[in-house]
């Protein structure tokens, strides 16, 4: 390693030219492959995303196609994972459900980051009244975990995928405010930011050139972790009947309808469970892996 490890790679303090950056990228790739969390998590996430993308154009059967003559048939060559109580192909429904999970996960994390990160940066930069107001607003949202927020929104507006996305997104805003603020404060208190201020750089330019590049990895790791929590919350809400409406497939609704067949056909419960655990595991491992990659010390 050259001096990249200790010096921030950005802005005024950048050393070296394109070669150094190329080197850093190659070494990041190598470290990625050597980090089990990042590697396994990455593979699972790629698989889930691939299944969602493929299901947009192709699934073995139409996930909504009812076939009463083949209801509750176990795994076979025709239906790899069997069929449900309406004779719908379980494998096709699992694939279609991954779209819902990724849709809800992506949009809710997007809402939380779009609001939470600027708010966190603002709270770090303006430590006076403005910062206090931002933090107190975050406190209020902190009282509403995803599930509670979803119930309140469902009571007011009726249950839908939109209320689920909004509820999860809003409930994660305070997390991003806090993570962004505390990480940004570390950068803002550093000597090179002091130097940049003395040099006459404006706050926005400091944010762009110093703060954001330095906290980006932490934020991305946090996004991956919250994505996994969003999938968990979405499953619970769909199970409670507060999200995706039947007959559309989602892992949560599949679990809900499997409840009536726990004795006769426990596999109907097992398949969506495995899918959920894999998806959540993938995103949380990826998040852990990214934080470990950031911490150069732990990768040695």
């Amino acid at each position: 390693m050259t001096e990249i490890g200790s010096a921030p790679l950005t802005g005024d303090t950048m050393v070296g030219g394109d070669d150094v950056i190329e080197d850093a990228r190659a070494s990041l790739w190598r470290r990625w492959l050597r980090n089990p969390s990042a590697l396994i998590g990455g593979i699972i996430v790629v698989l889930v995303v691939a299944s969602a993308v493929i299901s947009l154009v192709w699934t073995p059967y139409n996930p909504l196609a009812v076939d009463p003559s083949h209801a509750l048939s176990g795994p076979s060559l025709r239906h790899l994972l069997g069929t449900d109580e309406y004779g719908r192909d379980v494998f096709s429904r699992l694939m279609a459900s991954s779209q819902v999970a990724l849709f809800v996960g992506f949009l809710s994390v997007l809402i939380a980051t779009v609001v939470g990160i600027p708010a966190g940066l603002l709270a770090a930069e303006r430590r006076g009244a403005t910062g206090q107001v931002v933090l107190r607003l975050a406190d209020i949202l902190y009282g509403f975990p995803a599930l509670l927020a979803a119930v309140v929104l469902a009571a007011a507006f009726g249950a839908s995928k939109t209320t689920v996305v909004l509820a999860i997104g809003i409930s994660y805003i305070p997390v991003f405010v806090r993570v962004t603020r505390s990480n940004a404060l570390v950068v803002l208190n550093s000597e090179y930011v002091l130097a940049a201020r003395a040099y006459g750089r404006r706050p926005l330019a400091i944010m762009r050139r110093h703060v954001i590049p330095n906290i980006l990895t932490t934020i991305i790791a946090q996004m991956s972790l919250l994505f996994s929590l969003a999938v968990l919350a979405e499953t619970a809400l769909d199970f409670l009947g507060l999200g995706t409406a039947a007959p559309a497939a989602s892992w949560g609704t599949m679990l809900q309808s499997s409840q009536n067949y726990l004795g006769n056909d426990p596999l109907l419960t097992v398949w969506p469970s495995v899918a959920i655990v894999l998806c959540v595991l993938g995103f949380s491992l990826l998040g852990d892996g990214i934080s470990e990659l950031r911490d150069v010390r732990s990768s040695r």
């Binding site: 968990l232 499953t235 619970a236 726990l262 426990p266 419960t269 959920i276 655990v277």
Partner: peptide, 22 residues
Amino acid sequence: SQIGMAVPTVVAGLLLVIILTV
């Protein structure tokens, strides 16, 4: 424990019912 964290409470509940009750 990493796998346990990825299990939704619903799933834990349903699987426990299948194993211990059914």
